[in-house]
Design a protein around this nucleic acid. Structure first.
Lengths: 111, 111
DNA sequence: CTGGTAGTTCGACGTGTGTCAAACCAATGA
DNA sequence: TCATTGGTTTGACACACGTCGAACTACCAG
């Protein structure tokens, strides 16, 4: 992930930065994916296997799998197979970057 | 906006919270809207008229207008007409909420 | 009132996306 | 080796979304 830490409110984003950022925000711009992210992050041990996740939704396996893939390709989570199960964990660095980039300027810093 | 301040990583989002949050993240999940938000926020005085914005893109007026409407309906910006021009300004409260909700837990807080 | 500029709304069109069923791959266990 | 369970991939379909041109509204200047 190439964009860096200066908030969106500081100076105008370049088209490139905007493209990269938008890709990630689009990934969290879906209620199912947000809940998946939240379920994984808040799960005991910081990780959850897919079998823990599918039960929380009225959606089929393939659909959950699709959303996990979107989150994975956005860099928000990573998965690891252990024996029969695949465990997902969130990648806090990217989450932190997203959080930082949205922080509003303290009033009056701009000209 | 009804969702509140506890980070997504703390405890699983309810379906309702996820819906509301996703609506807003979807609004920032587009490169043009991200740049618009950034242009408005970083503009001198904290506001910009539409005429300041359209020139920054290779897009027609109606398209810019459409994206501004999406940002407006998401609660991220607000517009005010003064004489011939309409000035947009970002609403920092919502930006702050989005930022807060994405902050990762300090390691080891969860069980 | 007429003309001109700023901006939005409307209607249409092509592409992207969420969903599912069916087929497939990986690991375990008789 | 075969059957079973966990997950992903593929293909198809309906709907949402980004974009544009054209029509429209709001304001200002003669």
């Amino acid at each position: 992930m190439m964009f860096c830490c200066s908030p969106v409110t500081r100076q105008p984003l370049s088209a490139q930065e905007a493209d990269e950022l938008a890709r990630v925000f689009k990934a969290v711009g879906d209620p199912v994916r947000l809940r998946l992210l939240s379920l994984i992050a808040a799960h005991a041990g910081g990780e959850a296997c897919v079998c823990d996740l599918t039960g929380a939704f009225e959606l089929t396996g393939p659909t959950i799998s699709h959303h996990l893939k979107v989150l994975r390709e956005a860099g928000l989570i990573e998965g690891e197979r252990r024996a029969t199960w695949i465990y997902y964990r969130v990648r806090p660095q990217l989450l932190r970057q997203l959080s930082d980039v949205l922080v509003p300027d303290p009033a009056g810093v701009r000209a």
